[in-house]
Amino acid sequence: MQPPARSNRAYRNVARIVRPPLLAMTRRDWRGTENFPTEGGFIVAANHMTNIDPLTFAHYLWDNGVAPKILAKASLFKVPVLAGILRATGQIPVYRNSSSAGESLTAAIAAIAEGEVVAVFPEGTLTRDPDLWPMVGKTGIARLALSTQAPVIPVAQWGPQLLLGRYKKLLKPFPRKTVTIVAGPPVVLDDLYGRPQDTATLREATERVMTAITALLADIRDEEPPAVRYDMRRPGAQGGPATPPELP
């Protein structure tokens, strides 16, 4: 297949290595790419259930003409070999609770201005919801969206957790797993562009993104999501369930 136009040599080399095992391990039910803007930079925001879903997410984007710049936690940029791959392919480190925290937002804004697609997991970590529904998102997605006014495309994925369970280390590649990934239309945020980026506005924008992702996931799963979104800030919620359930 033709690699995305904005991919560099390092990105293409990584894809040559990563795509074949993903193709061998999965059956792909991919939908919604008609919602991707055809011009200019934009943001794609997805749910996060397991440590392998960044790869299935990137696979979906790559095979549909997008070489994403993924916002990834800074600690991954200290892992030997992986750090070199992340830097060579232009991924963006996220520094939390440090003096460098604003650098990731600045880098993401610059990437979008240059016409790149920035991929974000708004929850910031694996969901702690016991049934793997999206939890309350962090406001970084709102800051990025409102600062750039770039389209935000919500994406839901279901199936990667069958390859690698949440918090698990043992990959289960066979039998092949169906991975469903669906993109929806851009989240409506334009009525928030003129507002100050205060806490209320940032939370409103973030919740709209999470609501759109959750609606897509509910359609995939054909189930009703929880009436109240899991929130790690609630007393007793930090860290999630002591022993997360293993899905079949």
Rank of each mutant, 00 (worst) to 15 (best):
M1Q: 11
Q2N: 15
A5P: 04
Y11V: 12
V14P: 08
A15W: 14
R19F: 15
P21A: 06
L22V: 03
T26A: 15
T26W: 07
R28Y: 12
D29P: 12
W30T: 14
W30R: 08
W30F: 15
R31H: 15
E34N: 11
P37N: 08
F42M: 07
F42N: 11
V44I: 12
D53L: 06
L55R: 00
F57P: 04
Y60S: 10
W62M: 04
W62Q: 07
D63H: 10
V66C: 07
K69V: 09
I70W: 10
A74M: 12
S75F: 12
L76N: 08
A83M: 12
A83W: 03
L86N: 09
R87P: 02
T89Q: 06
P93V: 03
R96E: 02
A101S: 15
S104A: 15
L105T: 04
L105G: 05
T106C: 07
A107V: 00
A107W: 07
A108H: 06
A110Y: 14
A111T: 06
A111S: 09
I112M: 08
I112W: 02
I112K: 00
A113F: 11
V117W: 03
V118N: 00
V120F: 04
L126G: 00
D129T: 02
P130F: 10
W133K: 01
W133L: 01
M135C: 03
T139D: 10
G140T: 04
I141S: 04
I141R: 05
S147W: 02
A150Q: 08
P151G: 01
I153S: 11
I153N: 09
P154A: 06
W158M: 00
L163S: 01
L164Q: 03
F174R: 12
P175A: 11
T178K: 12
T178G: 01
T180E: 08
V182Y: 09
D190L: 15
G194Q: 06
P196L: 01
L202F: 05
L202W: 03
E207L: 08
V209Q: 03
V209E: 05
A218H: 05
R221I: 01
R221A: 00
E224Y: 01
P226D: 02
V228T: 13
M232N: 10
R233A: 14
R234E: 14
G236E: 01
G239M: 10
G240Q: 05
P241K: 13
A242I: 13
T243W: 13
T243P: 01
P244K: 04
E246V: 15
E246Y: 12
E246W: 14
L247M: 12
L247K: 07
L247D: 05
P248G: 14
